[in-house]
Simulated assay, not measured.
Amino acid sequence: MENVGYPHAIRRDSDVCNRFHNLKDEQQRIQIKTFTNWINATLSKNNNDQRKVTDLMSDIKDGVILLNILETLTNSKLTKEMPKSTRRPLQINNVSTALNYLRRRGMKLVNINCTDIVDGKPSIVLGLVWKIILHLQIQNTLSRRLRRTNSQDIGKLLTRSTSLEAKDFGKSWRNGELFNKLINRIKPGAIVEQKIQPENVRENLQNAFKIAERELDIPQLLDPDDVDVEKPDEVSIITYVGEFIKKYPDEVDVCLKERLLTRARRLSYSHGDSSLDLVRVKPLDEASGKPCQETRTIPYICVLVFVILYKCIWYIFIFFIIHNTFLRSS
C-alpha cells in the first residue's frame, strides 16, 4: 500500500527547518543592529573623534574599532597598527592585541581566533562583542556594586520591593510594559503607567525608548520592530537593559540584576564560555582602570547567610554554658 503521508511529513520537516533558519537569521540581524548601536554609543560618549561603525562585519576587520572599545571600557591604552589598514598582517596584529588583552583579563575565548574576526564571520564577531559586553560592562558594573555593598546595605537590598516581574528577557519584554516600569523605577513619574495598554505594543515600546534616551540618557539600541517579534532576542534585550544597570546601578531592582546576570551566564555557557563568574573575572580598579590583582568578590547573600549561621551557633553555645552552670549550681 502506498504511503501517501510520507511526502507530507517531508514537507512539514522542511517547513520547520525553514522557519528555524529564518528565526536564526532574524535574531542575527537584530544582534548586528544592537551591537552596532552599542559600539557607536559607547565610543561617542568618550571619544567624539572616533569613526562610527556602519557595517559591523567590515568595520571590525582592521581591529582598530575593537581596540577603541577596549580602551574606552577599561581606561587602558593599547598599541594600534595603522588605522583602517587594509593590509591583512596589520589587521591580524591589531585583533591579536585585543584578544590577548581580553585573555589577560581572565576571559576565555573559545573558538574565537584572529583570522575569523578579520574575515568578518558573523557568528564569531557577534560572539566576541557579546562576551565583551558581558565581561567589561554588565559583569564589571555588578561586581563593583557588590564590592561597595556593606553589611547595612545588604538588608535594604534584600527587602527592597520590586514591581518588575521579568520572568525572562524575551517575551516578557515584548509588549513594552517592563521597559516603561523600569524607567519609572529609576525616575518616578517619567511615564504615566495608566496610559500603557498591553494591546498598544509598538506605542509602548517607542514611548519607552524615546523617554529613556531623553530623560535618562540611555542610548536607543533597539527599535519597536526588533522587540515586537515572535521570539525577541534575549542577547539584544539584555544588552539594552544592561545600559540602565550601568548608568543607574543603585536604582535598578536587585532582583532584576540577579536575573539578568543569571540569564547572561546561561547564554554565555551556551556559547562554550564558562568563565563568567563573579569570583573568576578580574574587575577593574577604579583609580588606575587596570585589573585588580587577586580580587575576590563574595556574593553578599552568602555573607549574610554566614553571619546569621555564625550568630545562631554562638547563641546556642552561650545557652549550653548557662544551662550547664545552672545545673551544677542546683
Rank of each mutant, 00 (worst) to 15 (best):
L134S: 15
L90C: 06
V16F: 01
Q31W: 02
N113L: 02
E26N: 13
F179W: 14
L43F: 11
G176S: 03
V125Y: 00
E258I: 10
F317H: 06
I154D: 13
L67H: 09
S123K: 06
G189S: 06
L157G: 12
R148C: 04
V227Q: 13
S161P: 08
S14C: 06
F209R: 08
T79H: 15
S76F: 08
F209W: 11
S14D: 08
A41S: 09
I69M: 10
N113I: 01
N204T: 06
N75W: 02
F169H: 12
D217R: 12
N68D: 15
T36E: 04
L70W: 07
R147F: 01
Q206T: 10
K24R: 12
H271D: 06
T141F: 04
A208W: 03
D226Q: 12
A166F: 04
I313F: 08
V307R: 07
G170Y: 13
I124P: 01
K257Q: 12
L164R: 10
T115C: 03
I10L: 15
V125L: 00
R263F: 05
D253G: 06
L260K: 05
K311W: 07
K167E: 03
L66F: 01
E203F: 05
G242P: 15
L157P: 01
K33M: 04
W130Q: 01
V254R: 15
N324F: 14
N324R: 05
P188R: 08
P299S: 03
T54Y: 01
E26F: 06
T239A: 14
E213P: 04
A9V: 08
T325G: 03
W130H: 02
P249H: 11
E81G: 14
L304V: 02
D62Q: 00
N200A: 04
T74P: 01
L309P: 00
R160K: 13
T149F: 03
L304S: 15
R147S: 07
V118F: 00
P232E: 13
G155H: 04
P249I: 15
P283M: 02
G272D: 00
D15N: 04
F306P: 01
S85V: 14
E177G: 01
D153F: 01
I186L: 07
P219S: 02
D25L: 11
L142G: 04
V125Q: 00
E213I: 00
L327P: 04
H21T: 12
N37K: 15
L99D: 13
I32Y: 02
T159L: 14
I39P: 08
T149Y: 03
K181D: 02
N93I: 02
I218S: 06
N40W: 01
V279Y: 07
